[in-house]
Nucleic acid binder design. Structure first.
Lengths: 237, 237
DNA sequence: TGTACATCAGTGAACGCGCGTTCACTGATGTAC
DNA sequence: TGTACATCAGTGAACGCGCGTTCACTGATGTAC
């Protein structure tokens, strides 16, 4: 249900979404005037209604864009990794890297997310599959799958929120991530040797730097935030 | 910095705060019109400005009232308990009981809470003290105190959010709580025997029923939500 | 206890700005021949 | 390649409702004597 947009329309839409991201970092959508939005985006007021039916539709579009962005990012970071424990931990590491690279997107994501667990997004389905694989392989003994998934998700949320809120850099994020991985993996009942291998501070630090760095060199534009929405077509709203 | 309010003023203020709670369950404060608020509360529009300087001040007052309510509740539930591990677990159990009794307050609390960890509220200070006591007593070996506190807080948030979102009853909440306690305590590195004693499903179920039940018999009014704000004086705002 | 007065809180009409939405027009982009 | 026309998206002035805020008035509560 997506239509390819003309270059001109795509530019206008991207400018609006980007401006929306800037403003949604500060306050929720109800606190943002369309006047302010179009002024920030540098387009005419009427253009807004060429692209979105109303303000809520706009907020949904921004939320959707950000969510699919982090989903893609995590999926790419885990790449072709097949070991279930590595995938589980890799998801948390990738989420932290994303938060370091895109603190504003992360804030908006937290702001627009409604329920944490009920939603059946690809990310959550993938996590559930990985968790199930971990359990079936005997690598962890959580009291239940239904409890382990939100537990892990909550740990990811906590570490990401902490990093964004205090605005720490990659160097300080590494040890925090290591601590959280130890707490979360131990909670699942993963063996000590496995935990030590996964949560090794040096290894984590390198992996974080790798993820953050490679994204930096991949991006062509200087301002990553501005071009985030210019990738391709958008859902027809 | 609190002044005692005349009975009439207290009634009006309580009606406004209670109506605010009802409406804040549905949407954030910016989406609520003062017209709607006073209509729900059954008072004149002008009265609103007798009690609050503006809408944001009102939202703050509701948030403050709810927060101090849950703080009091948890402090009372832990009572004179001194064993640090029991206090830690007791906090999570009490939070779940509160969520079961007051799902709407819990939703509003989540909505009005800004940062999760940065704030220096009594509740967080108490948690930090308990956690430190647990570590010093050698009852747990988390990688760090700074990591353990937000980890535990995140686990409490997760279980509470899950319970409220799915609207489960006391019976189903018990097993969920047991699972989360196992995951969280194991994450901290608490000994298996201790965990088994604390997270015993039967014991937890009884404790939950006790907390929920005693609150029910304590309350005089039928509608607990309506009288929640009528207790005493409010901060002068 | 009763009366007169002061204060305090409630009331709702009135105001006017802000903001969401519309629309007639313009210019740009694309297409047919 | 050039010209004429159609479509598509941008523009910003205009509109008008909604909503935050004010205020003069009323009635209730409290106090003095």
């Amino acid at each position: 249900l997506t239509v390819p947009l003309s270059p001109r329309a795509a530019r206008t839409r991207a400018a609006l979404l980007s401006a929306g991201l800037d403003l949604l970092v500060e306050r929720p959508v109800d606190g943002i005037a369309i006047d302010e939005l179009v002024a920030t985006a540098g387009v005419a007021k009427g253009s807004f209604f060429n692209h979105f039916i109303d303000k809520q539709g706009f907020a949904d579009a921004v939320g959707h864009a950000v969510r699919s962005e982090i989903e893609t990012w995590i999926a790419r970071a885990n790449g072709s990794e097949t070991r279930p424990l590595a995938r589980l931990a890799g998801g948390m590491v990738a989420a932290v890297a994303f938060a370091l690279l895109n603190p504003r997107q992360t804030i908006v994501l937290a702001r627009t997310a409604r329920g944490m667990t009920l939603e059946d997004h690809p990310l959550n389905r993938q996590l559930r599959d990985d968790m199930q694989a971990v359990i079936e392989a005997g690598l962890a003994q959580p009291p239940s799958l239904a409890g382990a998934v939100p537990f892990w998700l909550g740990c990811c949320n906590t570490i990401v929120a902490n990093i964004v809120e205090r605005g720490v850099g990659t160097e300080q994020a590494g040890p925090m991530l290591a601590d959280m991985l130890i707490l979360a993996l131990r909670g699942l009942g993963v063996e000590s040797a496995e935990i030590a291998a996964i949560a090794d501070p040096n290894l984590l630090q390198r992996r974080l730097a790798q993820l953050v760095g490679q994204a930096g060199t991949e991006a062509v534009a200087q301002d990553g935030a501005t071009c985030l929405f210019e990738d391709d077509a958008f859902p027809d709203g």
